[in-house]
Amino acid sequence: MKRSSLLNSVYKNKFIYLSLVPTFALLLTFNYYPAINALYHSLFEWDGIGYEKFIGIKNFVNLFKDPVFIIALRNVSILAISGVIISITFPLLAAELTFNLRNLKMQYLYRTMFVVPMVVPGIVVLLLWGFIYRPDGLLNNFLTILGLGSLTRPWLGDFNTALFALIFIGFPWIGSFNYLIYLAGLQSINKELFESSIIDGATRLQQIFYIDIPMILGQIKLILILTIIGVMQGYTTQVVLTQGGPGYSTMVPGMYMYNSAFLYYRMGYGCAIGTFLFGVILFLTIVSRRYIQAPIEFGGTK
């Protein structure tokens, strides 16, 4: 009985399913198939060219015995935690400052200025930071002028500072997307909430913690998840600036995956790293969706 009603309802919606075909045809060809192909090969010893041998979960077992992978995991955890903290503070701070301006014309101008750097390609930003960190670069010159010459160091060549130098790239970390998302959240808060809290004698700072942040939790969660996804998979910065070095001090799983697959001819091992990353990202996404309340609303009925 139930089964036939399901079929019935599928049949009733046949036009909807049919109209989703183009999207899913593309996704199956260019996204699902390559992804599944890669997940499948994580169970193989595979050089990416010809040699292929099924080895079960041995790649994953080896992964956790591999000291390089463990270091990479440690590094990416540091990057992810700091990335999350950064992405939910600085852009939000900028959004709060803009949002609280009385002068609407200035608000509009500032908003635009924050968005302009979007046209600068990411690689140029990385090259710039490379120049800032050079031993004779801006940062060291700046420190010397301030009389802090003892603090100067080769930021990317020093085992103790390289990872933190990478975290600091992009300071003050106001990406236009994150900034506008927060601003949108703040603007959508019902004005009456502020007014009633002022009557209760709340200061602006109290308002931020008791009204703004709880009301834009959905936005915060989105930025949080996107940041986690970006940091966990990312390795562009390493490719351009450090190659994971010096030593393994900036090595991350994404970079190790790339090296294993393309440099070491251990494609199967690389796929295992990718699969692991996928699992971790999925897990973190589910956790943050579950434990920060404000689920996606499935609105609309028919």
């Binding site: 996804i229 990353l277 609309g300």
Partner: peptide
Amino acid sequence: ARYKFPGREFLFYAIISLLMIPGALTLIP
């Protein structure tokens, strides 16, 4: 967003989960 049909949530999350696949992994396939 606006229609309910069997498998809606499954298909939606099936799409969104693709955001989590690392790019370098799928380059050669």
